[in-house]
Amino acid sequence: MADVLSKGTLFPEELIPDLINKTTGASALAQLSGQKPIPFNGLKEFTFSLDKEVDIVAENGAKSKGGATIAPRTIVPLKIEYGARISDEFVYASEEARMDYLTAFSEGFARKAAKGLDLMAFHGINPRTGVASSVIGNNHFDKAITNIVTIKSGDSPDDNIEAAIALIQNKELDVTGLIMAPEFRSALAKLKTSSGSKLYPELAWGNNPGTLNGLSVRTTPNLAHGASLDRGLVGDFANAFRWGYAKQIPVEVIRYGNPDNDTTLGDLKGHNQVYLRAEMYLGWGILDPNAFAFIKAGA
């Protein structure tokens, strides 16, 4: 893929409206959980629980101790960015043409940010490098979740899901959603009844029905990214996971310098280029790790 986009070689003289945006990316976590604005300096959420059951009190009887546990979870936004060089002919193009560029770029950035949310929150990695991020630290599912079902040879994926749900519900917690890797969704789609018909026909041909047996479901390759053994993640996405953004900076057009620190491409002005950059402060938090369970492939 080229490092510099040149309008003269990539586009016709008259730029057609509505550029076809081939950028891919989506977030299963964002689809299953609630987004809320996050202050620039972070957000502290408190998880609250009453530790015991209600108590019967006899007439004139003494009341016993109940108790409550309040635990804080801090969500601190981190900065993500994306930039690209284009020919400085962009600066002299018509306003309509410039808007087409900026719209396509900002939409592409939104898709990359959505995919990045999954990769960062699932695996704790920098999406660009694929390497564990010290900025994220332990604030990701792979590190936080201890409820794990390991897929064994001959296992039914249906049984794996039931076992994972049981790990959560045995702790009297709710399950609101299931995220699957494509290979796990495919295994589930192949299951058949005793009569030979498909057990889950709504999953046939790669379809994503949105719900399965009344449970919200999403399929994403982000869960099994790289060498990850993650194949399924069930849990209370509606109440035990939070995400949001603190500030979304509009696309910036940079005309001078070397904003991407590329020693080969060098100075923008010296190469008749400008730089488009978008940034966002994005944060998330796993409020209760016990409310989630992984289904993982064997090592």
Rank of each mutant, 00 (worst) to 15 (best):
L268F: 08
L233W: 11
L265D: 07
N272A: 08
K36D: 11
L5Y: 15
D262V: 01
S194H: 12
R98P: 01
H271R: 15
M180W: 03
T24W: 12
G83D: 06
K190C: 04
S64D: 14
N222R: 13
G34N: 14
V91L: 15
S49V: 10
V4P: 02
P17A: 14
L188H: 05
P17G: 05
A240M: 05
D236K: 08
I70F: 15
A30G: 08
T24L: 14
S49A: 12
D174I: 00
G67H: 09
A163R: 12
T69S: 15
R242W: 04
G226W: 12
D174A: 13
A238H: 08
L265Y: 09
G285D: 07
D142P: 04
N147S: 08
N272C: 02
D118H: 10
W243A: 00
M180I: 02
F90P: 00
H271I: 00
R242Q: 03
D51M: 14
T23A: 13
R218T: 03
Y256D: 06
L15R: 07
D51T: 13
A132V: 02
N207S: 13
V274W: 11
L173Y: 10
V57G: 03
E89T: 11
Y92C: 01
T176M: 08
I145Q: 11
Y281N: 05
P37A: 03
N170E: 12
Q273T: 01
G196N: 07
A132N: 06
N222C: 12
S153D: 13
A104E: 04
Y245C: 02
G154C: 07
K198C: 00
A224V: 00
P157N: 03
T219S: 13
T9P: 00
L276C: 03
D262G: 06
A297C: 00
T211Q: 14
F184R: 02
A189C: 05
V217R: 09
P127T: 06
Y281G: 00
I148K: 15
D155I: 06
T263L: 11
A30R: 14
D267A: 04
L265N: 10
R98W: 07
G266N: 04
G154I: 01
K63C: 02
L191I: 00
I295P: 04
W284S: 00
V175L: 06
A2S: 13
S216E: 09
Q248E: 09
L119R: 06
D3R: 14
K65N: 09
D3G: 05
I125K: 11
L199Q: 11
A299F: 08
K171A: 10
F46S: 00
R218M: 10
A30F: 10
G285I: 02
V217D: 05
N290R: 15
N258P: 02
N139T: 03
L268N: 01
G124W: 10
K269G: 01
K171I: 03
G67S: 03
N261E: 13
K190E: 12
N60D: 14
P17R: 15
N208P: 00
Y200Q: 02
D142W: 09
K22H: 11
F90M: 05
